[in-house]
């Protein structure tokens, strides 16, 4: 669950990226965050993953209260979420399998469990047959599915994706969101930033629109089933 109460973020250079944000995202929701460039969408995600610290207001994420959380708790808080980047961020010299396994290895998971779990998430994103490929041998859409598999591998409560479809073609983008919907149907909260309104319109989901640092519309909680 995500709770923002009166959150304001001003960067050190004086830019106020978010102003007095109040919202709640319940466990199991699927939310699109939309808005024009520079609106503050990425800043919103950075606050959620604790990459940036709010100047005012209260933030709670997955049971962690950011105002009382210790610095050394940040890694454990991050293990409750999976992050997907616009530019995939795969390690070029590792196979698909190792890229996904890496995320488990660095949290100290035992090798046997890693093998089992990685196979499972690769199957989930439909890339079992590409496990031994290098990222460079995959299409953009496939690379992003590897990114999603990596985000899923530690079994997070929530997926946070900043323009995950920004670098892939429209048809693959649609499949990507369907995949996220499937993951959401299985119980994972999904937060997806995008500025492709045509894509958002194809799914009947909660949409939070940010403009110039403020929430200007929020369709609220929807029934969590897609409706193309």
């Amino acid at each position: 669950m995500i709770e923002f109460r009166g959150v304001t973020k001003t960067y050190p250079n004086g830019t106020t990226a978010l102003k007095d944000i109040n919202l709640t995202i319940e466990d199991g929701e699927f939310v699109f965050i939309v808005g024009s460039s520079g609106a503050g969408k990425s800043t919103f995600l950075k606050l959620i993953i604790r990459e940036e610290v709010a100047n005012a207001g209260k933030i709670r994420v997955n049971g962690f209260d950011f105002s009382t959380m210790k610095k050394r708790d940040i890694p454990y808080m991050r293990r409750t979420m999976g992050i997907v980047f616009q530019d995939f961020r795969l390690i070029p010299k590792m196979t698909v399998f190792d890229n996904v396994a890496f995320a488990m290895r660095v949290t100290g998971a035992p090798p046997r469990q890693i093998r089992k779990r990685v196979s499972k998430v690769l199957a989930l994103v439909g890339l079992s047959h590409k496990a031994r490929c290098m990222p460079g041998e995959l299409s953009g859409g496939e690379q992003q599915r590897v990114g999603l598999a990596r985000a899923m591998v530690n079994n997070p409560k929530m997926i946070v994706a900043d323009e995950p479809t920004g670098n892939i073609d429209p048809e693959r983008s649609f499949e990507m969101v369907k995949l996220l919907s499937e993951i959401n149907r299985r119980g994972t909260t999904v937060l997806m930033v995008t500025h492709e309104m045509s894509l958002v319109e194809r799914f009947d989901r909660r949409v939070i629109q940010i403009d110039d640092g403020s929430v200007i519309s929020d369709t609220g909680v929807r029934e969590s089933h897609e409706d193309e």
Partner: peptide, 17 residues
């Protein structure tokens, strides 16, 4: 740095990194 940033994003501790 790419690996380090991924480690941070998936919640590796600073000690581990």
């Amino acid at each position: 740095r790419l690996e380090v940033s991924i480690m941070k994003s998936v919640g590796a501790t600073n000690g581990f990194i």
